[in-house]
Design a protein around this nucleic acid. Structure first.
Lengths: 217, 217
DNA sequence: ACCTGAACACCGTTCAAGT
DNA sequence: ACCTGAACACCGTTCAAGT
């Protein structure tokens, strides 16, 4: 049973971190977050063992929100527009949060919250993709993992101009989506990644950060 | 006229930085680079006013190399495969260099070397895209700027699995390329970015880094 | 003219001292 | 049981002292 002030501080830190990360990206200092939350720097580390862990918590929450959106869309009448709306929601996460873009590329799936959220995302993406595939609106060699990586790609494509042309990502989402249609499909040179691929990538990332810590001692 | 040892040191620093950045990404310390180059930390700053400047020099060189590849491809017999090979060369730059991915997303075009290289890239991309468009192999609403942003996107899509499935990017390159074909083309919701958009984005980036420096004083 | 390494202001993280 | 702020090892950057 946590103390009342501790629970309040935890929430303050999460809210402050959430806002600061969205506005300034992964490079915001813990000092800034602590100041915004009205606590001492040490208190942040009292609730979260490291900055990476704090980021993982927030990232996991955001992804879980996207999973919820996806689950609602599984019952939509039009499987094609449901898939497109799911991808749109995914990109909006990137567009509204500077740190989400950076974290999506760099975060380690070793953290269980990130891992759970990612697996939930893969699952719902596969559901939506399967429906669209069976309805014949997308080509039959595209998987849920592809979809997750591709809306990520659309967001990253537009990111360099994000402040100047705020909705440019819509252009690349639609361009990529046109590539998913059966009309233009040609044989792809490499197979879709498997769940196992994602897991071994997670293990590699974990090993490499451990190496880095060791090197610095 | 630079002193002989100074010229040699400059080269050593560039070579060391080039290798370390490719292997470990933008986060490598100047200390590591200096050690590899066999010089004192201060010597690095003697040749390059800041880490950002050193990165800009190397990034500009890499992009210039890609421009040269693109220029050779302008005379290729098949405009479609010339464009595809250009995009392939662009992604290979990302795949072989961890820092290139990160820099492509974060680097400021305020630096004249980056700016010149980027403008050269935009030019040659537009040449190749124009030929492919006139040959009817890609849709007519796609520009050279789109192409640059899109091969970037394909590289970023595959990056999370880069160590596990090294040639996964080929899958997304071809998937995106299929979206460029006229067969699947539908009206896009947002216009292509203009050169002016890239320039105002560069000015914004410059202003925001200046703010950050000021805030820290 | 350039190289060097000590010094500075920052960062994430730890921890003894408080309540 | 939790909060605090001083202390630590790192980082990029500066600069006086050397050659």
């Amino acid at each position: 049973m946590p103390r009342a002030d501790a629970a309040r501080n935890r929430r303050s830190v999460l809210d402050a971190a959430s806002a600061e990360l969205a506005a300034h990206g992964l490079d915001v200092s813990i000092a800034r977050i602590a100041a915004r939350a009205g606590v001492a720097k040490g208190t942040v580390f009292n609730h979260f063992p490291s900055k990476e862990d704090l980021v993982a918590e927030i990232f996991g929450d955001r992804v879980a929100g996207l999973v919820a959106v996806g689950e609602d869309l599984r019952d939509a009448v039009d499987p094609g527009s449901a898939l497109l709306r799911f991808m749109t929601a995914g990109i909006e996460l990137h567009a509204n949060d500077r740190s989400f873009c950076e974290a999506a590329a760099s975060i380690s799936r070793a953290d269980p919250r990130v891992r759970n959220a990612s697996e939930g995302l893969a699952q719902v993406a596969e559901d939506l993709t399967g429906r669209a595939r069976r309805a014949g609106v997308i080509r039959d060699d595209v998987t849920g993992h592809d979809i997750v990586l591709l809306f990520n790609a659309a967001a990253q494509a537009a990111a360099p101009l994000g402040d100047t042309v705020p909705d440019l990502w819509r252009r690349y989402l639609h361009l990529i989506f046109d590539g998913l249609r059966p009309e233009a499909a040609r044989q792809l040179p490499v197979a879709a990644p498997t769940t196992e691929d994602f897991n071994t990538a997670a293990r590699h990332a974990q090993a490499s950060t451990r190496d880095q810590r060791t090197r610095n001692r």
